[in-house]
Computed example of a mutant assay.
Amino acid sequence: MNILLAQLPIADAQVEINLSNMLSMIRNAPLDTDLIVFPETTLSGFPTREEIGTTGLMTRSKPIRLIQEAARKSNTAIAFGFCEQADGRAYNTALLVDGSGRIALKYRKTHLWPDTDWGVFEAGSQYAVCEIASLRVGMLICYDIEFPETARALALLDADLILVLDGNMDPYGPVHRRAVITRATENQCFAVLVNRIGEGRGLSFPGESIAVDPFGNVLVESTDGHPVGVTLDRRRIEESRKSYRYLRDRRAAPLGVERTSSEDGVANTVSVIPG
C-alpha cells in the first residue's frame, strides 16, 4: 500500500479554505497513491462551541460529497477529520472514504483533549475497521493514541494498519511519536500518524508525521513540514508475528485484584492473573 502523509496547515472554523487545500492535495498526489491521510479536524479545524452551527457538517454535507467525488476520480482512499453534527450533538469525527468514493469507515474520537475538545464535542464509544488495498484499517484521533486500550481494541478487530489523525500541538509532539511507535510494536501492526502544521487558536502545530512498521521501526517521518509518502509491505506483519504473537500469548483475561497489607500496616494493591 502506498500512503501519502498529507500534513498541512488548517484554518480553524474555515471549511472552504480547508476544503480547497485538501482537494488540491488530492489532485497533486502521486498517481500510485492508494491512501491519503490528513490530520485531525481537517475540514473544520478546532471550532469553538459557538462556531459549531456554521462549521459543523453532516456526512451528507456538500464538502464531504466533494471529497468523495475526488476520491472516486483519483481512485484513491482518503482519511480526514471534521466537526460532525448529528442528533443535536457535535463529534470530533474521522472518515475513511475508499477509492470508489464510498464512506468505508466512520470513527468518533473517544478520548477528548481538555483544551480543544471539552465543552465542544461529545465522546465517541466505538471502534471499527475496514479493508483498504488488502489491509484491514482502523482509525484513532490525536489524544486516543496515548491510551494503550484504543490501539488494542483495533488490534482485537484484526487491524493491520492504525491511522492516527493528529492535531497535536507543541510541546507535546514527542509524546505522540513515542506512543505511535509503542502501539505499532505491542500490536504488531503498521501505524501512520499525520499531524497538522502551522498556527491556530494560539497553538503551534509541529507536524512531525510518522509511519512505523510492526517491529517499531520508523519507515518515514516528515521533518520539513511537507507531505511525505511511504510504502507498506504486508509481509512485514507476517514476519513480526512469525515467532511470537502478543495477542495470542497475552494473559489478560480479566485481572483480579487482591488487597494485602504489609507488616508495617501500609496497604498495597496487587493485580493477579486468575487461575
Rank of each mutant, 00 (worst) to 15 (best):
N2A: 01
L4V: 10
L8R: 11
P9A: 15
I10T: 12
A11D: 09
V15G: 07
N18Q: 10
L19M: 08
M22E: 04
L23Y: 06
N28D: 12
L31T: 07
D32V: 04
F38S: 00
T42S: 12
T42A: 08
S44C: 08
S44D: 09
G45L: 06
P47K: 00
R49D: 13
E51A: 02
E51P: 00
G56T: 00
G56S: 00
L57G: 10
T59G: 15
T59H: 15
R60L: 14
R60N: 14
K62Y: 15
K62N: 15
I67F: 11
I67P: 08
S74Y: 06
S74L: 10
I78E: 02
A79M: 05
F80M: 02
D87C: 14
D87G: 15
R89L: 12
R89G: 07
Y91T: 01
L96D: 05
L96V: 07
V97I: 05
G99N: 04
G99I: 03
A104S: 04
K106Q: 14
Y107F: 13
R108H: 05
T110N: 03
L112A: 07
W113E: 15
P114H: 01
P114Q: 00
D115K: 09
T116E: 03
V120D: 07
A123L: 01
G124Q: 04
S125M: 06
S125D: 07
Y127K: 08
V129T: 08
V129I: 06
S134V: 13
Y143E: 11
D144T: 07
E146D: 06
E146H: 03
P148G: 03
T150I: 13
A151Y: 06
A151S: 15
R152I: 10
A153L: 04
L156Y: 13
L161I: 09
I162L: 11
L163P: 05
L165S: 10
D166N: 15
G167D: 15
D170G: 12
D170P: 08
P171R: 04
P171D: 05
P171F: 03
Y172I: 01
Y172H: 03
R177I: 01
R177D: 02
R178E: 13
V180G: 02
Q188N: 05
Q188E: 07
C189P: 10
F190Y: 09
V192D: 09
N195Y: 08
R196F: 14
G200A: 12
L203K: 10
S204D: 11
F205A: 09
F205H: 07
P206T: 03
E208L: 04
E208A: 03
V212R: 05
D213Q: 08
V218P: 05
L219E: 02
V220T: 06
E221Y: 05
S222E: 02
T223S: 15
T223Y: 14
G225R: 05
P227Q: 11
P227T: 09
G229S: 13
G229C: 10
D233W: 06
E239Y: 01
S240T: 00
S240Y: 00
K242P: 04
K242N: 06
R245M: 04
R245I: 02
R250D: 12
R250Q: 13
A252W: 11
L255D: 05
G256L: 02
G256R: 03
E258F: 01
R259Y: 03
D264L: 09
G265H: 06
V266N: 07
N268H: 10
N268C: 10
T269D: 06
V270F: 11
V272N: 00
G275Y: 03
